[in-house]
């Protein structure tokens, strides 16, 4: 494994909240992608984190575009570079809302067309930019400003939607495992066609936990099996290290839930449903990896 480069493409002066894990992810994404890359960013926290005109917190070109439009805009850019014979990486860095809700049509279109790009969805499980309203990626039971009593429905299974497009490479990642993310971005960018990485990005103000717990929160998501780290190359599934152990013997879900204000007062019934979901997910992926379908 080559060492992670020292070069920084995301400067430390961003206007992210303290303890923001998504900006940490972006740092590693850019380190893996290197300078011959363009970021395409729909409306999201990253629109703000990058700073205010005429400043920028990044040393690669950043193309900001309308909320629903990132994958389509990246399609155009990728084709333009192809037409010019350029090898520049086109990377969408979009929030969960911009991916599973308003942007899903453009995402689906770009993957079906085989656009050569990397789409990264950093998932803080709500609309962070506008102050933490629910998104389709908000988990069951989580309180947001538009689900004050807890979200009554489950998290949209984005990965299975993307999987249905049969991309050459897709992976999940988590901000608490930056080296894993770095490697996945490297690998994705070495492959031609539409690539997808779904990164869980804990968010202190949204999930309501103290800022210093950001890494711990990501680790707990993985250790409890709530978030499973895997890769899928040309359809073939590989569960990654930290999740292998977690899937054999997941830590109690309460360890993850307890520290988050958004899950305060979840009913025992909801908690039970959450537990069942985690279990089902683990079983489904284990079966698939073992070749039993």
């Amino acid at each position: 494994m080559s060492a992670i480069p020292k070069e920084e493409y995301l400067y430390k002066c961003t206007s992210a909240c303290a303890g923001c894990s998504s900006s940490l992810c972006l740092r590693y994404v850019l380190k893996a992608a290197g300078p011959d890359s363009v970021l395409v960013i729909p409306a999201c926290c990253t629109s703000v984190i990058q700073g205010t005109y005429p400043g920028t917190a990044m040393s690669v070109p950043v193309y900001n575009v309308a909320f629903a439009a990132s994958a389509a805009c990246a399609s155009g850019m990728s084709e333009a570079f192809a037409a010019m014979g350029r090898e520049t990486n086109v990377i969408v860095y979009a929030g969960d809302g911009g991916t599973v809700d308003i942007g899903i049509q453009a995402l689906s279109g770009a993957f079906e067309r085989g656009t050569n790009f990397l789409y990264i969805c950093y998932d803080n499980e709500a609309y962070g930019n506008t102050g933490m309203q629910r998104s389709g990626a908000t988990p069951l039971g989580a309180r947001t400003t538009t689900t004050p009593g807890g979200k009554p429905t489950t998290k949209k299974d984005l990965d299975r939607i993307v999987e249905a497009h049969n991309p050459p490479y897709m992976a999940t990642a988590c901000s608490a495992y930056p080296l894993d993310l770095y490697k996945k971005v490297k690998k994705a960018l070495s492959i031609e066609g539409p690539k997808f990485i779904h990164v869980l990005a804990p968010c202190p103000p949204g999930w309501r936990y103290p800022t210093e717990k950001t890494v711990e929160m990501g680790k707990l998501a993985v250790k409890t099996g709530t978030w499973i780290l895997y890769e899928r190359e040309y359809g073939k599934l590989t569960i990654n290290g930290p999740s292998k152990a977690a899937m054999r013997k997941p830590a109690p879900l309460e360890d993850y839930i307890r520290g988050q204000g958004r899950f305060k007062n979840v009913s025992p019934e909801i908690l039970n449903l959450m537990r069942q979901q985690v279990q089902q997910n683990i079983e489904r992926l284990s079966r698939e990896e073992a070749g039993v379908c």
């Binding site: 206007s15 992210a16 303290a18 923001c20 926290c45 703000v48 103000p205």
Partner: peptide
């Protein structure tokens, strides 16, 4: 309001 996050 600016667009900054907390602490600004």
């Amino acid at each position: 309001y600016g667009t900054e996050r907390r602490g600004a």
